[in-house]
Design a protein around this nucleic acid. Structure first.
Lengths: 198, 198
DNA sequence: TCAGTTACATGCACTCATGTATGTAACTGA
DNA sequence: TCAGTTACATACATGAGTGCATGTAACTGA
């Protein structure tokens, strides 16, 4: 069958991007080599080099598209503290988030890499950071500190998953329950807890 | 001057172990190559291969010694919840802990590596995990969940430092203050909070 | 003091990942 | 339909990292 050039390009680009994310998840940043990605995508290195300047270019594009994908699946957060918590956890617990953490971690060890993929990683950081919250209530010290602490805890849990082949830690549920309980408490009767937690 | 063989061996082994940790901290696991470590230690690859079977063997030994070093500097935790928190943070915020996280992260992506350095990494995990607490009070659900949540938050903060060349995040102090406040509250009047946080 | 052992240094072969041609199909427009 | 362009695949050169083998200097014990 006859396919247009644009169809050919977009399908192989999609295959490469998907493969890149998948290899990142399964093997980590260092083991994500051009040959590995191409084999996984069912194309040769020539195809990769034709569509992207090099492996780094593909990975940057892949992370960019992954951000859009994750944004699309997690939606926008509800306007409550519990909503912000759940929203962050939905993003962070997505199995594809490991690819983001791989990039984040690798960029921390390589200044040059940080310059190339830093912007994408920064976009992901806003997903779990309430720093840019539009909700004025989130700026209140007690709430802000809780959300920041929760953010770190969620990242810790995500790191636990990432280092355990995606399996959640045994105490993950308990920690999440505690955080959710606190979030609900903030939402329900924030004034009651202010004296206790600030 | 004349030095005994044992002196020669121990000094170069110490140089290699120190260099290995330092390169791990500065460049990360993937960039920690035998040549890099040897250059940093001021010896040749021949010396490394003479004292260790390969680079992996050196890194395993280095992590083993690092565990003893960190244990020695952080001491044993005080018998309070605040003490457990501070103890864990002292260990996790040590700049050398980044080497541990590098190993931990790398092992998560390489099953073979996990088998070789898994035991060492597991030892470090107990440093920040209250799972093996001798104190019966730590087993109480509310306390246990708080410590687990704190553990994840501390690891999140450590990850933030690791990915920022060791610089602490802007909100690190606020998060730590909140955790310390909660820990103190648990210690001071645990019963008061039980109704709120469990 | 000297034969034997230990502690390194040096050199070579091999693998692997990458960048750079160059070749060849598949499409497109006139 | 065919010249030109796009989308790949293949081949080659290069450099980095490692394991191994060999060479040499420093120590040790008799």
């Amino acid at each position: 069958m006859r396919r247009t050039q644009e169809e050919r390009s977009s399908t192989t680009q999609a295959a490469l991007v998907d493969a890149a994310i998948e290899v990142l998840i399964q093997r980590g940043w260092a083991a994500t080599t051009a040959a590995q990605v191409c084999e996984h995508a069912g194309v040769t290195r020539g195809a990769l080099l034709h569509h992207y300047p090099n492996l780094g270019g593909l990975l940057a594009s892949a992370l960019d598209r992954l951000y859009d994908d994750i944004i699309a699946t997690v939606g926008t957060p509800a306007d409550t503290i519990r909503g912000a918590l759940d929203h962050a956890w939905t993003a962070v617990s997505d199995r594809r988030f490991k690819a983001v953490m791989e990039a984040w971690w690798a960029a921390g060890n390589d200044p040059e890499l940080a310059r190339s993929i830093g912007p994408v990683v920064a976009k992901f950081a806003t997903l779990v950071s309430p720093a840019n919250a539009t909700n004025a209530q989130f700026r209140e010290p007690a709430v802000a500190v809780f959300l920041l602490t929760a953010r770190e805890a969620l990242l810790g849990l995500a790191m636990g998953r990432a280092t355990s082949a995606g399996r959640s830690l045994g105490h993950e549920a308990a920690v999440l329950d505690a955080l959710r309980w606190q979030a609900d408490a903030f939402d329900a009767h924030r004034s009651d807890l202010e004296g206790v937690l600030t």
